[in-house]
């Protein structure tokens, strides 16, 4: 599904290198968790995968479903099935949720050679998927993220994930800002979306999320590199001991 090889990325403006040789392989149907201290490069990795501007890829490659991901425009990546749930979802003042999502759904459908959804079918789909993540119906008629609470924005990301049915979803700290009930609803949603042909990369600081969404693999990202990988138990160990022991280990090695 996703194959990242020796990926180096730096900030376009000043050349500071943030990602310093990432290797990661995600097979279809797998859930990978990425943990790591603040500022270690997790969101940068997500941004680079989704194709945000402002970064230079200085080395390495990324293949997505066998194709060169880095060669695609961001909208093409999305249509090919890459979804990013933003750590900080963006507000689009005055842009109605339904208008926005209809554009999104239809451009993805067009890319897949499917017909546009009729207005009626689209609204039906919206209603169904909103129920799926318990999105307050009033939010559906508002402008995208405008004036949404922090938690509502996060829930809205998962709602969009459900609407767009991607192949690979990257969730950047979707759990932060969610209350306990919302966390359960969102995790249930993600679990129901788990499928043999759909993979997840879940970025989080908290073991708690991984109790709901049990990962196949856990990676620790530090200083722009993946310094440790393991199974779900690694997350427990991080929860108990923090990151220092890995730093020490890394130094020893």
């Amino acid at each position: 599904m996703l194959e990242i090889t020796n990926l180096h990325a730096s900030i376009e403006d000043d050349g500071t290198e943030i990602l310093k040789g990432i290797n990661l392989s995600v097979a279809a149907g797998e859930v990978h968790a990425i943990m790591g201290p603040n500022g270690s490069g997790k969101s940068t990795l997500a941004s680079v995968l989704a194709g945000r501007g402002g970064y230079d890829i200085t080395q390495g490659s990324v293949s997505f479903q066998g194709e060169d991901l880095l060669d695609m425009d961001p909208d093409v990546r999305a249509r090919e099935g890459l979804f990013l749930a933003f750590q900080y979802p963006v507000e689009l003042p005055g842009v109605n949720m339904a208008t926005f999502l209809r554009h999104a759904v239809n451009s993805i459908r067009e890319h897949r050679g499917q017909d546009e959804l009729s207005a009626v079918d689209f609204l039906k789909l919206m209603k169904e998927k909103a129920a799926f993540v318990n999105l307050d119906p009033s939010l559906r008629s508002r402008a995208v993220n405008e004036g949404f609470s922090g938690g509502e924005k996060k829930r809205n990301e998962i709602f969009q994930l459900a609407m767009l049915e991607p192949k690979l979803a990257v969730l950047d700290e979707t759990d932060s800002g969610l209350d306990i009930d919302a966390l359960r609803v969102v995790s249930d949603g993600v679990n129901q979306l788990r499928a043999a042909d759909r993979s997840f990369v879940v970025i989080t600081h908290y073991q708690r999320l991984l109790e709901y969404i049990v990962p196949d693999h856990v990676h620790v990202l530090m200083g722009g590199r993946i310094v440790k990988s393991g199974g779900a138990e690694l997350a427990h160990k991080l929860e108990e001991h923090g990151y220092d022991w890995i730093k020490d280990e890394a130094v020893v090695a």
């Binding site: 909208d75 999104a104 890319h111 969009q160």
Partner: peptide, 26 residues
């Protein structure tokens, strides 16, 4: 905003349509 355009693009919307959506919203 670049970030607004990127957000739209990340949902599969072309850059041109993104600009139209944002201006119309404005």
């Amino acid at each position: 905003g670049e970030d607004q355009i990127f957000y739209c693009q990340q949902r599969g919307i072309s850059e041109v349509d993104a600009i139209k959506l944002i201006v119309n919203g404005f």
